[in-house]
Design a protein around this nucleic acid. Structure first.
Length: 277
DNA sequence: CTTCGATCCTGAAGGC
DNA sequence: TGCCTTCAGGATCGAA
């Protein structure tokens, strides 16, 4: 469900709500059967710690609680919500009870998400984060770095930018959107993307992500903000889910193809690249 | 090493 | 109305 903008929006909302630095009073492990079983004892070791800021790395949420941090990946359908009572719903897996009296609850119908507890001063070297590629919004990242890293890869550019060890945070929706914006075919081999195209692509990725963050995230189906509201961004999608509809630039019929098991949308006229190996 | 496909789940939506 | 099939924004794993 959530790509970088959705996780970033959520991290900001959560961070704001922890301005008051609440203490975690009790952890309720309701259903440990997530993608990886919940580490119950580790989670309980967070009891008594004060929660401060919530940050994001790639598509992971990181709740800082002193020397330890709670890491959360939302998979496809994970959501966090506040409740004033321990009022449970179907697919609630974890409830964090705070000193303020409120509960922060993790719900995940498809159970592709997971949580873990890691040491705050070794977040970057944790098993979840150490193999991740660069953050697209990091101003130190240059198009040249991506081009260099992709130089030996025959993988289609769409799949390449979605691979979290190459570049982080770009999921299925924003991969199609960014390639459309940069006018590059999703089928083009990563190694054949030119210098100029890499610049356009990185710029497009940044613009697409920034716009979505500003809009509070895209909701196609399941994504919910902390408030339970849908994201406000869905009307901004230019190609995703527009198969056979006219391209917004040239009216050509948008095409769809399954790549790596995921639906990919593009305009065969605007987006250059044909194939290539 | 790279690359591809199958796989983990539930629920919403569409066809008949 | 109801049953059945298909598909979904992720990412790991094993096989080739």
């Amino acid at each position: 469900v959530p790509e970088l903008p959705e996780v970033e929006s959520l991290a900001r909302e959560l961070s704001e709500s922890f301005q008051t630095h609440e203490t975690l009073v009790r952890v309720h492990c309701l259903r440990p059967d997530l993608r990886f079983p919940m580490p119950i004892e580790e989670l309980e070791s967070l009891q008594g710690l004060r929660f401060s800021e919530v940050t994001r790395r790639a598509k992971y949420l990181l709740f800082r609680a002193g020397t330890k941090s709670l890491l959360s990946h939302l998979g496809m359908t994970g959501t966090w919500r506040f409740e004033s009572d321990l009022r449970l719903q179907v697919h609630d897996h974890l409830a964090l009870q705070f000193s303020s009296g409120r509960y922060l609850i993790y719900n995940d119908p498809r159970r592709f998400g997971y949580v873990d507890v890691i040491s705050t001063d070794a977040i970057g070297s944790s098993r979840w984060l150490k193999h991740l590629g660069p953050e697209p919004l990091d101003p130190h990242l240059k198009a040249m770095h991506l081009q260099k890293h992709a130089s030996g890869s025959s993988v289609a550019i769409k799949l390449w930018i979605m691979d979290q060890k190459n570049l982080v945070g770009v999921g299925n929706i924003y991969a199609s959107e960014a390639l459309f914006r940069a006018k590059i075919s999703p089928l083009k081999a990563a190694s054949r993307v030119s210098n100029k195209e890499w610049s356009a692509l990185l710029k497009a990725v940044r613009e697409v992500l920034q716009k979505a963050i500003a809009g509070g995230g895209t909701t196609l189906r399941d994504y919910r903000r902390l408030s339970g509201d849908k994201g406000g961004h869905q009307s901004h999608l230019s190609v995703y889910d527009r198969e056979a509809l006219p391209c917004i630039r040239c009216k050509t019929k948008i095409r769809m193809k399954v790549m790596g098991g995921r639906s990919t949308y593009w305009c065969p006229k605007c987006q250059k690249g044909l194939t290539g190996k």
